Amino acid sequence: MKILVSAMETSSNVHLKELKKYLSNDIEFVGVFDKELGKPLYDLTNLAIMGFVDALKKIRFFFRLRDELVELAKDCDKVLLLDSSGFNLPLAKKLRETYPNKEIIYYILPQAWAWKKGRVKVLEQTCSKLCSILPFEKDIYNDKEKITYVGHPLLDEIKEFKHELTNSGKIVFMPGSRKTEITNLMPIFKELIKKIPNKEYILVIPPKFGDEYIKKTYGDVSNFTVSKNAHEALSQAEYAFICSGTATLEAALIGTPFTLSYIAKKLDFFIGKTFVKLNFVGLANIFFEKMGKEKLHSEFLQSDVTVENLLSDYNSMDKYKFFENSKILRQYLKNGSSQNVASVIEN
């Protein structure tokens, strides 16, 4: 079986790699994905975008890429779209127009529950099957047979969950994977470690970054122990300071207390605040709100991201309460998603 794949985010490809373990060996991927999974059209590093402004700069390229993928789909049995709604929704529309009977599966759905609820109609009209990784997501869809909660991929990918609080003396710092995130947070993290003495400071850096890029983007990291394995670092740490994103949910599931911080470009933050009507940005907090519970962790955004605020949160957090709540979060998400999605694709 040949499957057209559009997986443009680093996190999507982590999920895709886990999914592939459950697929038959005769399944071939074509399209956009990590080169470890086959022969993609483009290197993923050329596709990375940061915010609305960057997306506008690359719009011509993405129109051309969409057309290339539609052409490739002609010889494919099915289509698998992962996340990246800004690109994958228009792609789904074009695919449905071109191939009315082609099976289109969407895994890691657009966050229509957060904003742009009109996307629900588009998804239901263009996709054959919708694989949801959020328990509450199906509530906003009309076609209940088309959407299925398949579990959450992180419960497949995280190999070790804490069974007790750790006093390891290790603190993890995760300033994100995009250049702007890193350059915004690293100066603050470097000052913060001066206020938390006698600890080992673990800096998690994505494996794809080479030494030259690290030196240019992160600056002097001599006061940190560098790790390129986020899950291992988090499982060993007693605390973490993390940029908003998937990593916050990983820490919450593993059971490592943390503080979320995020500094976006001012225009991107203004647009996001205007259109996204959510009380929290961290997924774990959003889940707890859906369950009718208090937030799991603190969130500091924009000008509130200061050494003083992060240090105060570190000193005042009820770490035992956080740890107990992390168990509730795992129960809420129930199980991993990879095997279930593989069944959807092959059935």
Rank of each mutant, 00 (worst) to 15 (best):
K194Y: 12
A55I: 10
T98D: 06
F161S: 02
V281M: 11
I3K: 00
E289C: 08
S338H: 08
L333G: 05
R330I: 09
Y213F: 15
V30Q: 04
L4M: 11
K162I: 01
L109I: 04
T306Q: 04
K265H: 13
K2H: 10
K20I: 05
I328F: 05
G38P: 01
L47M: 04
A247S: 15
Y141S: 07
L192E: 06
Y106P: 00
S337L: 03
I147R: 02
L203K: 00
E238H: 10
I188M: 13
G210P: 02
D143C: 11
P207A: 08
I254S: 03
C131M: 13
F322H: 10
F161L: 04
I205R: 03
T306V: 01
L72H: 08
K94E: 12
G255T: 04
H163P: 03
F209H: 09
L185P: 00
S343G: 05
P40W: 07
K93I: 14
D139L: 08
T180W: 08
L203P: 01
L69W: 06
K194N: 12
T166Q: 12
P90V: 12
Q331T: 12
E18P: 02
L56H: 05
K58F: 02
I328M: 07
T180M: 09
K116Q: 14
C243F: 01
Q125V: 07
S261P: 03
D75E: 14
F287S: 03
T180Y: 11
L91C: 11
T10I: 15
V344S: 05
G118C: 06
G51F: 10
L56A: 14
V14G: 07
S128L: 08
N309K: 12
T306M: 07
H231E: 09
N142G: 04
S85R: 07
L89C: 03
S168H: 04
T126S: 13
F269H: 14
A73H: 02
I59E: 10
A252I: 10
L310E: 06
L311R: 02
V70I: 15
A48T: 15
V14I: 14
L203N: 00
C76I: 06
